[in-house]
Each structure stands twice: as structure tokens, then as C-alpha cells.
């Protein structure tokens, strides 16, 4: 559990972060959203003490971070930044091994760990491992950066615009990979982004920052349903609200069982079902595009179902 208690940072008389208090539960993802200059990066960098707070405390599992030498603290906390920051003179594998080597792990253990991480992030250790950063694609470099941050299985992972440098297709893939890895490892994540869609997609809770203050800290559904301030609403974009809300849940939640006589005919019964992970927003988009009023979705348990347009439209409005 990470607790920020009345954290404030002044830079030469300018208040960058103003009395921020928030708690991030173990194993959850907290997304910090805001425009540039809102203080979100500063807030993140105070957690691993790249920046020291002017006042306030930051506790990890109840222990004040100020009580630990900064390098020791940072080795326990994963850190991923926008331009991946890989060391250009080291191979991908050596980059991933950075913190284990700092902690003087035995060589064999370092090697095993690097392989394990690369496989988890779908990087072939024998092919990608020996490459230098300039020989990697953007997506590969980003994944190496994540692997490096996770090398000693930190309980906390800090990510500062980790997908900012990726093109949209690769970004979506990288976001999905992160969600998968985070679930598997149960790591607590604080993610800074300027992209509300990304925050909604990845965050268990979202902190919206403006001018150094947190305007709202709540679950995505709450943020969308009940934006606390006009700024939060602005950030959500009024025209997109319903779609954002629908993007939070899988379409399968609304599926009715299929079968003879169960509901009206789907029209195109032989069209392949949508995949289990499809969100309600995607399902509605599919219907609008294909002109149908029903789509079939597959469920994780292998059964199928049908989702109607009316159900989707109803679900797009918070009660």
C-alpha cells in the first residue's frame, strides 16, 4: 500500500504539487491524469525520491520513504519512462539485468531472471537479448524497459508516460501486455499519463490533477458517471462520455443465451462471434458499422450469447 500524505513540492517559489493525499491499494493500478504542467510527473518522481517533497510524507507499507537511502529505495521500485531510457551501450539483456547486478545477485540467477522476464514480455531471449537498444524496434525497446523495471519483482512500479512514444497500434498492444503482466504479478502500479482513455483502460482508480492539486480520485466508472469538477468533465470530453463508460465493461456481461426461439433472429447468424474481451463500446461500434441490431459474442467459458443494441444503449448511461 502506498500512502501520500499532504505531499507538497515547491520549485523556486512555484508550487508544482499542492497538498496531495492519496492511497493506492496493494496490487492495484492508479492512473494519474492531467495536462502538462499539472504536477503529475513531479508527484510520481517524489515517490522514488528523484525529487524530494517540500513537505508531507510518502509511506510504502507504512514505512516512510525518507528513512531509506534513495538508491536503496529506488532499487525496490520499478521505474519506466517515456523514451524507455535504455542504456545505449548495453545489450537488451544487460539492460534488464541492471538492478539485479547492482544488488549483486549471483550470475546464474541474473541470467535465469532475464530469460524469464523476456519470455513473459514476449521477447525472444536468444534473438533480442544480445541486441543493442538502437537495434530494437520502438515496441521492443518499450518492453525491454518494462522488463528492466520488473527485474527484481518490485512491489511498486512507477510509469511515466510509458506508451507515449509508441504509435497507436503498438500502444494498444503494449497496454494490453501491461495489464496482463500486472495481473499476473500483482504489482502495484502508479501510471502517469495525459491520455484519459489510457487511464480509463488501465487504471483501477484514476487521480485527475490540475495545477498541482488532485481534483478527483476515484474508480473510472465514478469519474465518468460523476465528474467532480468541470475540469474532470472537460478532460473526459463530453461527446465521448457514453463510449468511455461502455468501454469499461465487456459486452459479454449483457449477452443473452443463444438458442432456438431465444429472442429475435440475429439476422446474420453465421457471422463469427466477437471475442470474449470485446468491450461494450466496441460491440456497439460494430453494430453501427454493420447496420445490425444484434451481435454474437463469445464468452470466456466457451459458450456464446447475443447482445442487443437496446441493451447496449441502456448500459451506456450510468444509473
Amino acid at each position: 500500500m502506498i500512502e501520500l500524505q499532504s505531499v507538497t513540492k515547491d520549485f523556486a517559489g512555484v508550487r508544482a504539487v499542492n497538498d496531495v493525499s492519496l492511497t493506492v491499494e496493494q496490487g492495484t493500478v492508479a492512473a494519474v491524469v492531467g495536462t502538462s504542467g499539472s504536477g503529475k510527473s513531479t508527484l510520481l518522481r517524489m515517490v522514488n525520491r528523484l525529487i524530494e517533497p517540500t513537505s508531507g510524507r510518502i509511506l510504502i507499507d507504512g514505512a516512510d520513504t525518507a528513512g531509506v537511502p534513495a538508491p536503496d529505495l529506488r532499487r525496490r521500485i520499478g521505474y519506466v519512462i517515456q523514451d524507455h531510457g535504455l542504456f545505449p551501450h548495453w545489450s537488451a539483456a544487460r539492460n534488464i539485468a541492471t538492478v539485479p547486478v547492482l544488488l549483486r545477485w549471483p550470475r546464474a540467477q541474473v541470467r535465469t531472471r532475464v530469460r524469464e522476464l523476456m519470455e513473459m514480455l514476449q521477447l525472444d531471449p536468444d534473438v533480442i537479448g544480445p541486441r543493442l537498444p538502437h537495434e530494437l524496434s520502438g515496441g521492443q525497446a518499450q518492453r525491454v524497459g518494462v522488463a528492466r523495471a520488473l527485474a527484481v519483482r518490485p512491489e511498486l512500479l512507477l510509469m511515466d508516460e510509458p506508451f507515449g512514444a509508441l504509435d497507436p497500434v503498438i500502444r494498444a498492444q503494449a497496454q494490453a501486455d501491461l495489464a496482463r503482466v500486472q495481473k499476473r504479478l500483482g504489482t502495484t502500479v502508479i501510471l502517469v499519463t495525459h491520455d484519459m482513455a489510457e487511464a480509463i483502460r488501465l487504471g483501477d482508480r484514476i487521480a485527475v490533477m490540475r495545477a498541482g492539486r488532485v481534483e478527483q480520485f476515484a474508480a473510472p466508472a465514478d469519474i465518468i458517471a460523476r465528474p467532480a469538477t468541470p475540469f474532470v468533465a472537460d478532460l473526459l470530453g463530453e461527446g465521448d462520455r457514453a463510449f468511455r463508460y461502455l468501454s469499461l465493461r465487456p459486452a459479454a456481461d449483457l449477452a443473452r443465451p443463444e438458442g432456438p426461439g431465444a429472442g429475435p433472429a440475429a439476422g446474420d447468424a453465421d457471422a463469427p462471434p466477437l471475442s470474449p474481451g470485446t468491450t461494450m463500446a466496441e460491440a456497439l461500434s460494430e453494430m453501427i458499422w454493420t447496420g445490425r441490431d444484434h451481435v454474437r459474442v463469445a464468452r470466456a467459458d466457451g459458450t456464446g450469447g447475443t447482445v442487443s443494441r437496446d441493451d447496449l444503449i441502456r448500459a451506456g448511461r450510468p444509473e
Binding site: 522514488n48 528523484l50 534513495a70 538508491p71 536503496d72 529505495l73 529506488r74 532499487r75 525496490r76 521505474y79 519512462i81 517515456q82 523514451d83 524507455h84 531510457g85 535504455l86 542504456f87 545505449p88 551501450h89 541492471t98 538492478v99 547492482l102 524497459g145 528492466r148 512507477l158
Partner: peptide, 24 residues
């Protein structure tokens, strides 16, 4: 981004100097 990453990884000043800054 490289110096930032080095600091964030927990390299001490000296470690960053000898294994990152000077080699680069």
C-alpha cells in the same frame, strides 16, 4: 532519458558515472 533511468534504477552517483555517463 538515460540519466533519468539510471537514477530511477537506483544507481548511485558514482555508479552512474562509471557505468553509464563515462562509457557513453
Amino acid at each position: 532519458s538515460v540519466t533519468e533511468a539510471a537514477d530511477g534504477m537506483g544507481l548511485t552517483r558514482r555508479q552512474r558515472l562509471t557505468s553509464v555517463d563515462v562509457p557513453l
